[in-house]
Nucleic acid binder design. Sequence first.
DNA 1: CACATTGCTTTACAATGTCAAGTACCCCGC
DNA 2: GCGGGGTACTTGACATTGTAAAGCAATGTG
Lengths: 199, 199
Amino acid sequence: MSTVATGTSPGRAALLSAMEELAREHGVNNVGLREVARRAGLSHAAPTHYFGSREGMIRALALEGLSLLGRELCAAQERAAHLPGRERLVADSLEFVAFAQRHPAHYDAMFRTPRPAQGDETLDGARIAALDGLRALVADVRAAGDITGDVETTFLQLCALSHGLASLAVDGLLHGIEGPAPAEDVVERTIRAQVAQLP
Amino acid sequence: MSTVATGTSPGRAALLSAMEELAREHGVNNVGLREVARRAGLSHAAPTHYFGSREGMIRALALEGLSLLGRELCAAQERAAHLPGRERLVADSLEFVAFAQRHPAHYDAMFRTPRPAQGDETLDGARIAALDGLRALVADVRAAGDITGDVETTFLQLCALSHGLASLAVDGLLHGIEGPAPAEDVVERTIRAQVAQLP
DNA sequence: CACATTGCTTTACAATGTCAAGTACCCCGC
DNA sequence: GCGGGGTACTTGACATTGTAAAGCAATGTG
């Protein structure tokens, strides 16, 4: 073969998980192809073989993370299905932030890999799909009469707030902006206030 | 000299502005010390001389950006001083997002340079200082009786929402999440809705 | 048995970040 | 007017990186 290889294979999976470990430690843009290969016990060119380039490898991590996020948001929704409408919004938003903290490397690759990697439509599609559960939830809760605001506006408010909080939390910036309270409490308080204010 | 050099000097300024150009084009973590030096017309080691390391150079860009942001948020506040309380909150939040779009390289360095660079207290201090105007504004507007919610919570809501929107906008992700409406309209609509909902 | 595909490896190269030393210039005390 | 010390760099070297090209064993497939 000349370029990028098949979908799954033990080597590929080993590389991805090695990359995740390293990105967790050093930040996603400080991981080297060769270091990843070393940790996975393969030759230095194995990552290029599977992912085509450094950027391709990050992209692969992003795709993996997006499908994970989609599943976990749905799972959280099911767990919260019996709660009142607004509580379901709180639960899903909290789960979003918690996901970012649990999988910081994936999260970086998914939503925080600046400039390049723009205009990749399968990546864009995966992002939309991952968030579609949340969008549908907002529509449901509105249909049930628990909130009355415009669905798209409400959805974006929740997305942007959650993404903002998640980014600050993952980068350890919350303590810089807010006081020294534990990050999780600050996040929960803010999201709760937000959802309570929704019209 | 052995390590990092003085505060200002023509070379240093040239390097910083070369870096800003390059970071705008390729994203902040794809700029190379040597490329910056080339564009500034200096030798490949000039950046190391001034900033000590690659990380130090990004840090310098962050500090520059933070002082800029602080000034511009204050300027926006003065321009909006005659408006009703909530409109002043809208104006300052919008200015925050607009700043990120006007100075994407600085913004990345300031708020979106993951993992390392954590626990740098002069950077943390500069971040707090840059946002202090907004925090004070929230307190003012509340003191005037235009809003009633807790100052810290309201402040964090606005910060996180603005940061989230700014990040999405800068990364070109808004079109992926929201429809194809121009980013600026989406941002304005969302921020306006948010401020209107504040208790 | 020929042949393509998969799953890598080896070799090679240009470019990068960083370190150690060197150089040209300016100012200040003597 | 001259030596010494700082400033503002440069030059040279080195280990390491991302990427490209070619190769090679094993595994199907006709």
